[in-house]
Design a protein around this nucleic acid. Sequence first.
DNA 1: TAAGTAAATTAGATTTAACTAACAAACTTA
DNA 2: TAAGTTTGTTAGTTAAATCTAATTTACTTA
Lengths: 155, 155
Amino acid sequence: MDISASLENYLEVIAKLSDEDGYALSNDIADKMEVKRSSVTVALRNLAEYDLIVYKKYKPITLTEKGREIANQIIYKHQNIKAFLKDLLGVKEQKAEEIACKMEHFIGKDVADRFVALSKYIKSCPKNEQMWREGFETFYREGKDIRTCNSKCEK
Amino acid sequence: MDISASLENYLEVIAKLSDEDGYALSNDIADKMEVKRSSVTVALRNLAEYDLIVYKKYKPITLTEKGREIANQIIYKHQNIKAFLKDLLGVKEQKAEEIACKMEHFIGKDVADRFVALSKYIKSCPKNEQMWREGFETFYREGKDIRTCNSKCEK
DNA sequence: TAAGTAAATTAGATTTAACTAACAAACTTA
DNA sequence: TAAGTTTGTTAGTTAAATCTAATTTACTTA
């Protein structure tokens, strides 16, 4: 009853276009995903079969309730994984985007939540947050720990 | 010049069998990967084309130097991602295994290294390491931070 | 409103990675 | 060593996701 990673990507893009315009057009989907329009048509037929989008030939596409729900789950995972990679791990924007775009399809909400919790946990102590960026980057590059954890936690 | 995720998986399994027995047999590869033997034959032909394995019909398979190198890279990423998920994030063994098995194919060494560094970084303060398991799990489940970071770091 | 342009679809080909079924090679053992 | 079993290969099929080329529908404007 699960859809493929490819179809999830289509759904995600449709959701984003819907948020901007209220609906999605085949052309815009093709542009955003860098695939041909004919590939989009095939994908739309499939998503419609699963009742995830409302699809009438030659008409703008909208999400069903079920489709929106699944899209939101994917977007939630995407955003949080990306944020973790970028803000905590120091992975560059574009690379973080690419990786999140793949992980979102096989990571469950529970694991995504753990990524979120880890970020918060680490940053919940002001001292740590303040030192995070520089501290971890130095540790990653030089293996040297510049933290001084002899101060009270003031949270 | 990159091989597919599927071929990388075959290579990884061949490497593990080689470590145990010195070579790999088609049958054992099929068993470990839960695919049919005919699928293995096709994959072996492909890996041989890339000069990653030594493959003679009906003979045991060994890795070339290049094949071993690539296999080691994949195994390195696999192990470290899995360890991060399990030990730091608290993801269960089997789930961590599954996720690592997918991430290993699109995460670069640099990002894998960041996962390693993060684990070390967090655990490098004895106080943190001691409290990590319980502390983070509680934070994840209840959103409550039970850490007391008012002690000197004794590393 | 007829003609031209843009958008979307259909039809058919390609690629990848699996599968089943049939066959061939290699080994085991009575 | 002949017969049976295990292992490995070949040939042909399937399914998903892409593509190109041709066609159809919808929009625009002179």
